[in-house]
């Protein structure tokens, strides 16, 4: 297979398989988790304003008082790379063209120099949180193969995408093909690793907020 054939495959069959596994995986995992159900709470509720599952879904995106000081790298690094990922994935012109071809929807892009900067900042933040995972006793203690693996499969698409745009190391076509392949790997593993928090965090926050809302505790 030469580089053109490789690129054609990752853009064609490869993408179809990856998106297929991703979609089926997400649906399967959501059913696997939420079909377990839960018992209805029959204790008398005490409703207060501002306490509910929906409130918690939004509120948990903000750090609780005093916590940033306790773990600055987790919060600042975490916000930076999550927002950075959002920017490079959804606001880069070529990506928007792909979404348009897939779903028929498009939106304005950010200038490519800005995306360049965002990619570099994202990678820097990801390296910082990785170093923190190695250095902090608690994070190191909790870490399993899955943590190093998911870091890698999240980092590679950003790195290869940035290198493709910058024409670094390998010919553009090859690097672009590697970039698309790395995204496909990410799509395939996402439903079956901790990356699935991208979906379940809404359910988790909702459950937590609902249980507490029932008690009249705004969390």
């Amino acid at each position: 297979m030469n580089e053109m054939q490789f690129l054609t495959w990752v853009r064609g069959d490869g993408l179809d398989y990856a998106v297929g596994i991703f979609l089926l995986g997400v649906i399967w995992r959501l059913i696997e988790i939420y079909s377990l159900g839960r018992k209805k709470d029959i204790s008398a509720s005490r409703s207060v304003a501002g306490a509910s599952g929906w409130h918690t879904i939004f509120r948990r995106s903000l750090p609780p008082e005093g916590m940033v000081k306790k773990s600055p790298v987790s919060y600042i690094g975490g916000y930076t790379f999550h927002i950075g990922l959002f920017i490079v994935v959804f606001l880069f012109a070529p990506h928007i063209m792909l979404f348009q071809s897939l779903f028929g929807l498009s939106w304005p892009a950010l200038p490519s120099q800005f995306i360049d900067l965002a990619a570099v900042v994202t990678m820097a933040a990801m390296v910082v949180v990785l170093v923190d995972r190695i250095n902090k006793p608690v994070k190191r203690y909790l870490s399993t193969f899955g943590d190093w693996f998911t870091w890698t499969v999240t980092f590679l698409p950003v790195l290869t995408g940035w290198m493709a745009v910058q024409h670094l190391l390998l010919p553009y076509t090859t690097m672009l093909a590697l970039h698309i392949l790395s995204v496909e790997i990410l799509l395939v593993v996402l439903p079956f690793t901790k990356l699935f928090h991208a979906f379940t965090l809404f359910g988790s926050r909702w459950y937590n907020g609902t249980v507490n809302g029932h008690k009249g505790v705004a969390v």
Binding site: I33, Y34, L36, K70, S71, D147, K194, G203
Partner: peptide, 12 residues
């Protein structure tokens, strides 16, 4: 199930 699936081992 949702909680275990959401944990990212951040240690907070």
């Amino acid at each position: 199930a949702s909680y275990f699936s959401s944990c990212v081992h951040c240690g907070l």
